[in-house]
Design a protein around this nucleic acid. Structure first.
Lengths: 334, 334
DNA sequence: CTGAAAGCGCTTACAG
DNA sequence: CTGAAAGCGCTTACAG
């Protein structure tokens, strides 16, 4: 367990001053190629590892970015987190992933822990409720912060917000089911009053209105379990419903998995559309028609924006919407 | 964007020396309660935030733990990561979550980035292949490192390994299917030659041998998609198979979702058992019988061990197995 | 292009 | 119980 070598050791080994070593570390162009090489070699020879804490202390930029997600167990967010992290790694930043688990208390705790660790920026998909604590620590941190997918009410404007065009997604889903000949289309799942639910529902409502159709709305948890229970509710209380737009794919997959026991054939008796395009939807029975939010594109765009903000001070627009598209599979009977 | 206050500002505000502030920060018992209070109050008044980079530089312990996972998109690992992170937060450590995505190159890169950031310990579920680079950077890091779920071949012994009792799991699954009356039981999925596959399969094989039954083994990717394709293979080439033990739940869920189109009734024509007990298996059709690895217990045990190692130098045993149990649901026809 | 010096915000002995 | 001083490993002007 001997001490790790420092730039001083490297300097000694390479026969230069420690400033020169530091310049090599930063890739400065004012060091001769030859010198650079010998320094690099000295580093590998003595097993030097860069100490970012020291660098951070002096230069105030850690190269760490905090990604705080409301529900990391939802595959949609997992997918985003995985892609985002890889994207950032390319830009030389490390990602600290934290799961606030829909708990605003946990969220503010985690954020303040990340601030202590000196993160250079935040990407947050916030948990709802008790916004004060979270906003207080974020304000005190005074660091580039981007909201994704969801936005805190009081933070609109202060922290730029980037999300898929949920409203358009709702419209596309509704138009598709109408084109498939559905007469009565229900909107299933998603917590009442939440902005994301509102937007997806609004797209659905406006299309139904344009076609003179009556809406059927059954909100609730965005989970498989709730989706399963909804299928039974539909069968018993709303047997005339022949199309369902689900708040997200989890709800939709729950509905699909409940159908066999209820004697319903999804894609035939009941045409189902989800939202998010998580991978599981490709391998469900039947495969799930859904609204894709282009997560890879969303992740790279988010990564680019936060990096541009940190490095060059380019503040993203206060609100931006990314494109969505309909992905047609068998669950809607196509 | 004014500078963040430092302990010097706090000291001035509270009318004490900065050493005293530092002692308060560390919860030293040698500070009068009264002093402590006034210092704490001064902190909140001027909006002080602790700078861990500075502390790390001086004391060489960052309070950061790196969790490097081979496939974060698999819900099994996501679940573990989420629980582990919460457990560590309780102990005052922050978790840096990284996804190596089954890519050993990415893995060694991420580890060295984490080392630069000064993590105090590693938990690694390694990606296989090209072990040299990963081991080299880990050796250089010289920091407490625990392997979970999987172990690098060359690292047995050097880095303690903690995993569920896969072999017993394979046995429990096989015994259950035999008790259910299955005559021909197949083992589906899992990459050939991987230790985890070997162990699960070994449990299955030994039970079959004890009962004089012939094994049927179809290895491959541990994904839903592969599970789906296996169901068709079974139907065409192995119609006599009436029980299936899947490498993991993803494969099992893939098999289940393929059954309807093949005219098979899971739990009846084909009794299916998975492995891992991911949440999706509770809401599949039919619900999935599986081997539970008690992820919450595993996560907290892992967290405790790494913390004890870091704080008190307690090195975990070089290999340990955690209990597994059979969870019976409808897919095995019970 | 390279060297000597100061300083980032803490913690750590060491006096008192 | 509290204060003055040194130092962790870097980066940053500033000379040369």
């Amino acid at each position: 367990m001997k001490q790790r070598p420092t730039i001083l050791d490297v300097a000694k080994e390479a026969g230069v001053s420690k400033s020169t070593v530091s310049l090599v570390l930063q890739g400065s162009s004012s060091v001769k190629e030859e010198t650079r090489k010998s320094v690099r070699q000295a580093m590998t020879e003595i097993g030097y590892v860069y100490n970012r804490s020291a660098a951070t202390l002096r230069s105030a930029s850690s190269g760490l970015i905090g990604l705080v997600i409301n529900d990391l167990r939802n595959p949609f967010f997992t997918e985003f987190a995985a892609l985002f992290q890889m994207e950032l790694a390319k830009a030389g930043f490390a990602t600290v992933l934290a799961n606030s688990d829909e708990d605003p208390k946990l969220q503010s705790q985690m954020i303040s822990s990340l601030v202590e660790h000196g993160v250079s920026g935040f990407i947050i998909s916030p948990s709802y409720g008790e916004e004060e604590a979270t906003l207080a620590v974020l304000d005190a941190a005074n660091t580039p912060t981007l909201q994704v997918f969801r936005s805190l009410e009081r933070a609109e404007g202060t922290y730029p917000f980037l999300a898929p065009d949920y409203l358009l997604g709702g419209r596309l889903a509704a138009e598709h089911l109408i084109a498939q000949g559905c007469q009565t289309i229900a909107f299933l799942g998603g917590l009442e009053g939440r902005p994301v639910t509102q937007e997806r529902m609004q797209g659905y409502l406006s299309v139904l209105e344009e076609h003179g159709l009556e809406p059927v709305i059954l909100t609730g948890q965005a989970t498989r379990a709730f989706g399963k229970s909804l299928a039974a509710t539909l069968k018993e209380e709303f047997p005339h419903v022949d199309g369902a737009i689900c708040f997200n794919d989890l709800v939709a997959l729950g509905v699909l998995s409940a159908c066999p026991d209820l004697g319903m054939t999804p894609g035939f008796d009941l045409r189902v559309v989800g939202f998010d395009d998580i991978e599981d939807g490709q391998d469900s029975y039947p495969p799930l028609t859904t609204i894709s939010c282009d997560i890879p594109g969303f992740a790279s765009s988010t990564a680019n924006q936060i990096v541009a903000w940190i490095k060059n001070g380019v503040v993203p627009p206060s609100t931006a919407r990314s494109p969505v598209r309909l992905v047609i599979r068998a669950s809607s009977g196509a």
